[in-house]
């Protein structure tokens, strides 16, 4: 464990909690892409099946359970409890355009053609594009609630910190994983446009609205 991975995990946890609280407190999921949340639930489900097969540490196990629990709770709040506030018309990204190519790529490019490894690879590739429905929805509505931008900021920051974690691990442990790194770079690049708007607008107290 290193400072980049720890702050990355805490940033990820913060994002997940911010989103859950936003929906719960405002009793509304307006502006939130349910499809992205479905993808995140799928990412955690396919990546954390090793909870059933191996124990790494209490931290690892507890965080995985929190991530999975919050992901499904968020999907439940969006599609069941606060379904009336779900903006389905603007959340129109076709999930099959992400899941099918990612599934195919995971079968072609992986470390080992075993069940858990393919699922892990699928989850890594899927996570890198899982935010697209959310970013697409914001581009369609032309704006985002400030609390939603904070959610996106911490979510984007987490994988950017993981990139530093991988540099650290390569330098100090001689460890690196090309699949996780490439997917992590792609994932972080997808946030660059948002990061720019977040820093130039939201941090200056303005509302995030497009076109910029």
């Amino acid at each position: 464990m290193n400072i980049f991975r720890l702050t990355g995990d805490l940033s990820h946890l913060a994002a997940i909690i911010i989103l859950l609280l936003k929906i719960w407190k405002t009793r509304s999921c307006a502006g939130i892409s349910g499809k992205s949340q479905i993808l995140f639930a799928l990412v955690f489900t396919t990546r954390y099946l090793d909870l059933l097969t191996s124990f790494i540490s209490f931290y690892n196990t507890i965080m995985k359970l929190i991530y999975i629990g919050c992901a499904y709770a968020t999907v439940y709040l969006i599609y069941m409890k606060f379904k009336a506030t779900y903006d389905g018309n603007h959340d129109s990204f076709r999930l099959e355009f992400l899941v099918v190519p990612v599934g195919g790529l995971a079968c072609l490019v992986n470390h080992d053609f075993s069940f858990l490894e393919i699922l892990w690879t699928f989850s890594i590739y899927l996570e890198s594009v899982a935010i697209l429905p959310q970013l697409f929805m914001i581009s369609k509505t032309g704006e985002a609630e400030t609390i939603t931008t904070h959610y996106l900021f911490f979510l984007g920051l987490y994988r950017a910190l993981y990139l530093f974690n991988w540099i650290w691990r390569f330098y100090f442990e001689g460890f690196f994983d090309m699949i996780a790194i490439v997917a992590g770079v792609v994932q972080t690049i997808l946030y660059c446009d948002f990061f720019y708007l977040y820093v130039t607008k939201v941090l200056k107290g303005k509302k995030l609205s497009l076109p910029a």
Partner: peptide, 10 residues
């Protein structure tokens, strides 16, 4: 030898 892929990571 560290693991081939970061299974110790979240």
């Amino acid at each position: 030898q560290p693991p081939s892929s970061p299974k110790d990571e979240l």
